[in-house]
Simulated assay, not measured.
Amino acid sequence: MTKTESWLSGGSRLRSIDLLRGAIMVLMAIDHVRVYSGMPAGGPDPAIFLTRWVTHFCVSGFVFLAGTSAFLYGQKLNDKKKLSIYLITRGLLLVVLELTFIRFCWTFNLDFKAFMLAGVIWMLGWCMVLLSVAIWLPFRAIWITGLIMMTVQQVFHLAPANWAWWHFLYPNSEEGPGWINVLYVLVPWIGVMMAGYGFGKLLTFEPARRNKLCLQIGLSAITIFIVAGSIVAGFGPHNDQPFIFRLLGQQKYPPSQLFLLMTIGPIIALVPFAERTRGWLANVFTIFGRVPFFYYVLHILLIHLLALGLNCILYGSFHQEWYHTAPYASVPEDHRWGLPLLYLVFMLVEGLLYFACRWYARYKLSHPEKIWLKYI
Rank of each mutant, 00 (worst) to 15 (best):
G229D: 11
F115Y: 15
M347S: 12
G10F: 03
M150Y: 11
G309L: 04
V152F: 09
K370N: 12
V54E: 09
W337V: 09
K80C: 04
F64C: 02
S16G: 06
K113V: 09
W189T: 01
R140C: 07
R90V: 00
M262G: 08
F294Y: 12
L339T: 14
L124G: 10
V331I: 12
G289Q: 07
E175W: 13
I287F: 11
F346I: 12
Y296D: 00
A159T: 08
L302W: 06
I142K: 00
Y296C: 06
C105P: 05
V284R: 06
I231W: 08
A326R: 01
Y354H: 15
L110A: 12
L213P: 00
S230G: 10
H335R: 14
W322H: 08
L342K: 00
Y73L: 13
A326F: 10
L124D: 02
K81W: 14
A66H: 03
S84W: 01
L302G: 05
L258Q: 07
A159R: 05
A47K: 14
F156K: 08
S9T: 04
V232A: 02
L258D: 06
I226V: 08
A29F: 07
H167D: 12
M193W: 09
L310N: 09
E5G: 02
I376Y: 15
Y328I: 07
V182H: 03
V133F: 15
S9I: 01
P272Y: 05
I376T: 13
Y253I: 13
P266L: 11
F355R: 13
G178T: 09
I135W: 02
T223C: 05
I180G: 08
P332D: 12
R358F: 12
H335A: 13
G91V: 05
L19E: 01
L353C: 12
T51C: 10
A118N: 07
L93E: 10
E275G: 07
Y363L: 14
R15T: 07
A66I: 09
V133C: 15
K76Y: 11
M39C: 05
V297D: 00
D45K: 06
R246E: 09
C105W: 03
L83N: 00
G43L: 11
P207T: 01
L219W: 04
I303R: 00
C105H: 03
L50K: 01
I135P: 01
A307I: 11
R34P: 01
I144H: 10
Q250H: 08
P327I: 04
S173I: 06
Q251T: 13
H335G: 10
I287M: 10
A29G: 09
G200I: 05
G74I: 03
L20A: 01
S16Y: 02
A161H: 15
A141H: 13
L186W: 03
W7L: 07
M39I: 14
G42C: 11
F288C: 06
L117D: 13
M150L: 13
G196P: 06
A70Q: 04
V63K: 00
I180E: 03
M194W: 07
D18L: 01
W337G: 11
L298Q: 05
F49K: 02
Q153N: 12
A161K: 15
I371H: 15
T263E: 11
M128F: 15
T68G: 02
I300L: 00
F273T: 10
F104Q: 02
G229L: 08
